[in-house]
Amino acid sequence: MTGQAEQDTQTAPSTTETHLLGGRVSLRQPAKGYRAGMDAALLAASVAPKAGERVIEAGCGAGAVLMQIALRHPQVSVTGLERDPFAYELAVHNAQANNVADRAHIIHGDVANRFKALNLPTFDWAVSNPPYFDDPNTIRAPAEERRGAWIADHGLKAWTEFLVKSVREGGKIVIVHRADRLADILSLLAPKAGSFAIRPVHSFADEPAKRVLVQATKTGKAPLRLLPPLVLHPRTGPKHTPEAEAILRGEADLAF
């Protein structure tokens, strides 16, 4: 992630240290493989929990989203589920390094095993940036260290089912994903969730949206809302638009 005076410095042979939210978050993450970027910032900015509420992230990786939520909302507790052992250890480290270990619970587990297996009470918010592809044959094979972040071995359905099961009635679900999977996301969530709010995310104002942020409410019945788009980059000038830059620095949110 750029545009927020961040610097990467080598901390170990296999990791680097990155600073997010204008330096408020210190994130140790893999030097190779999946690295947190704009999607993590957008997802974290789309969560608006009240004091005392609980947030779970499915597939938390090294904890980029969780750490940003925890720093944005000091009176909220966060839980992350991560199946990759290395990413899990990094998330545990990052919770300690950012002084939020007392309200950040990292679990080593897989969404495919279902929420019930965690033996946890339901949450107020469930968020995720699921892997973007279900079928490895549809894309050029990613490097092995990136595979888990790119390929959903059990399909998008496993992720949406986990998210729905993990929240209470009236709880919120937030997903960032490819824009061309929007219909799939809505159809998978619709049996148990509604009151959809959709925000298209455009790289440039004159290009189609490549990402969407989708918020749903468990058992919600309100009409679908299509929100104003977020444009990330201008054609000339700074790297990011003022709105995107403010989100990266933690100075603005993406309230639904």
Rank of each mutant, 00 (worst) to 15 (best):
P85H: 10
A152Q: 02
K165C: 10
S77I: 05
W159V: 04
A112E: 13
A193P: 02
F162C: 06
H108M: 15
A5T: 02
A255D: 12
A62Y: 09
G109L: 12
Q29Y: 05
S128C: 12
S166I: 00
P13I: 01
G61R: 08
T219W: 09
A117E: 15
T219Q: 08
G61E: 12
L81I: 05
A48D: 11
S77G: 15
K50D: 02
G80N: 11
A44T: 03
A58L: 15
H19V: 08
Q7P: 13
K32G: 13
S26M: 08
H73M: 03
S187V: 04
A5V: 05
A143K: 14
T16P: 11
A51C: 05
P229R: 05
T16M: 11
L213C: 08
P130H: 08
A44N: 11
L71C: 09
P223M: 00
G63V: 01
R24W: 10
L118C: 15
T122G: 13
P49L: 05
T241P: 00
L43Y: 13
V25R: 13
I185L: 14
A149D: 06
A193H: 00
A244N: 03
A62G: 14
T16K: 14
L182V: 01
S46K: 14
A158F: 07
H19E: 09
P200T: 01
F133R: 15
P228Q: 01
R199T: 02
F204Q: 07
A255W: 13
A40E: 03
R35W: 09
H93V: 08
T160C: 04
D110V: 12
E243L: 14
G63C: 02
T2W: 12
G22Q: 02
D253T: 09
L213F: 14
E245T: 11
I69W: 14
T219S: 13
H73T: 03
D39K: 05
V76C: 00
L232Y: 08
K239V: 08
V174S: 15
V167C: 13
D153S: 10
E207D: 11
L71S: 10
D206S: 09
D184C: 02
L182R: 07
P223S: 00
L213T: 10
V25D: 10
H154N: 06
G23V: 05
D184G: 04
E161K: 14
A5S: 07
A152E: 01
A112M: 07
L27W: 05
P30K: 13
V201R: 10
E53I: 10
L248Y: 00
F256E: 01
A44K: 11
V78T: 14
Q10H: 08
N94F: 05
A216F: 02
H240E: 06
P191S: 01
D84N: 06
R83N: 11
H19C: 13
N119D: 11
T138V: 11
E251M: 00
A104P: 04
R54Q: 15
G109V: 09
S14H: 06
T18V: 09
K172S: 09
L81Y: 12
G220D: 04
K192C: 14
E6N: 05
T16Y: 07
P228C: 02
D206F: 11
R28S: 11
V76Q: 00
T219C: 03
R249C: 04
V127F: 04
